[in-house]
Design a binder for these strands. Structure first.
Lengths: 240, 240
DNA sequence: GACCCTCTGGAACGACGTTCCAGCTTGACA
DNA sequence: TGTCAAGCTGGAACGTCGTTCCAGAGGGTC
């Protein structure tokens, strides 16, 4: 009765794994990984912690499901687009999808690392691997080198996306509202910190310190993709 | 007095940041990240949790220091060796140092991701970046491309090392004592799981499923390094 | 001997993940 | 329509964690 009077007309849409994961992603985006607790999640869903455990085994599965949901949406850029694109361009599209996802969800990078560390070849890696592998196959790479080439691509993408998500997260943290000003200020801070390093111990970093100012992460990321793709074609093209 | 009777002759060597970090690494290696608690660490050092906080600000710093200690030891392979090696070989040596470190310390991969996520260009990344950058400079890469080439190398290495550490950790977990038998069994499991995937959704993975059997992680890792190096030389060599 | 500063380690606090369970809702069957 | 089991809910409670607090030991200096 009391519950009836609080939700008079329609009963609140029932709890479901889907709704829980969706709320978890929202909580991760807004308050960060440290803010995602079962109590906060329960309050967000107007329920108690116990109810959540009926749908989800524990926090590991919750984080895994949130990660997979975001990655699945990110990798899905491939099939719908015009199919006339070259395999290289499709690789860039998939890679950029993941890159943007890690930028939109700063928690994604570490969760990806954790997922891959816990269940390496289970949930999320095959999705990415498959998506990239199809393009490698569409290039002129002999079958014996499919695995190596696809692995190299995936490893670069995951490593770079993680690192760059960290950058934008830090930049956004420095000034609260993410903007170009904050980003430039962040890059200035990094550049200054690099120039202040010990010249004996870090000569190379000091030499490239000024290059970091005004650099575009996306552009940098794509340049790396191009570089790996060049390595694939140079090393595996027929006639080699 | 009671303490005197328990440690009769030499007073126990005093607590220090160094000793704490060393014990933390040991605890991480033996019981995993979930086993590293301040209580267990205190017991391991025959003290209480409060004493540790005099030397270390919190768990973040503890994990960061443990990560940096292990990485510093891993990257230190470069200077002592014979200097007649080619830059490419030195890159391989540095990369293998990190690869082996993540294999010896399965917790390292995720901690690296976390460190890079929290303080991106602070503690540990510059060390790796510097080590790789020197070799890139020693190759015939024009200065404008130093940053891109070094970044690509570092991203691939971190991504691949993390993924492969995950593999060996899972393989070791399947059978308790890590051995070739367990590893083969693990690869068989992965291969079988891949072949059982939906042919509609994962055609590529099914096609390479059998390639995974008997594959050597180190060899695979080095093949990726070679591939990225080939991309660097193909894309940045003079006359391009 | 009195003092202070560095360092210790046990107790205590708040928050977390997780478990437990009493009770509500719902649909099927008599 | 009444009854009952199963699905589902949510609040209370448990154990453990990171962290803080603090009374006091140790060792050097006037």
């Amino acid at each position: 009765m009391a519950t009836r009077s609080r939700r008079p007309e329609r009963r609140q849409e029932p709890l479901s794994r889907e709704r829980i994961v969706e709320a978890a992603v929202e909580l991760l985006d807004t308050v960060g990984e440290r803010g995602l607790t079962f109590r906060a999640l329960a309050q967000h869903l107007s329920t108690g912690p116990g109810a959540i455990y009926w749908h989800i085994t524990g926090k590991d599965e919750l984080l895994g499901a949130a990660t997979e949901a975001v990655v699945a949406a990110a990798v899905a850029v491939e099939p719908s687009g015009r199919t006339a694109d070259s395999p290289e361009d499709t690789v860039r599209a998939v890679a950029l999808g993941l890159f943007d996802a890690t930028e939109a969800h700063p928690w994604l990078a570490m969760q990806l690392a954790m997922q891959l560390s816990r269940t390496p070849w289970a949930t999320v890696a095959p999705r990415i691997f498959e998506s990239l592998g199809r393009q490698v196959r569409a290039m002129d790479v002999p079958e014996a080198h499919w695995f190596t080439a696809t692995s190299a691509l995936m490893h670069y993408i995951l490593g770079a996306a993680g690192q760059n998500a960290a950058n934008s997260a830090s930049a956004a943290r420095a000034g609260l509202t993410g903007g170009d000003v904050d980003r430039d200020a962040f890059l200035d801070t990094v550049s200054a910190a690099w120039e202040a390093l010990d010249p004996e111990e870090y000569p190379f970093i000091r030499a490239v310190a000024n290059q970091v100012r005004g650099h575009d992460d996306r552009e940098q990321f794509l340049a790396g993709i191009t570089l790996v793709l060049a390595g694939i074609t140079a090393h595996h093209r027929p006639g080699h």
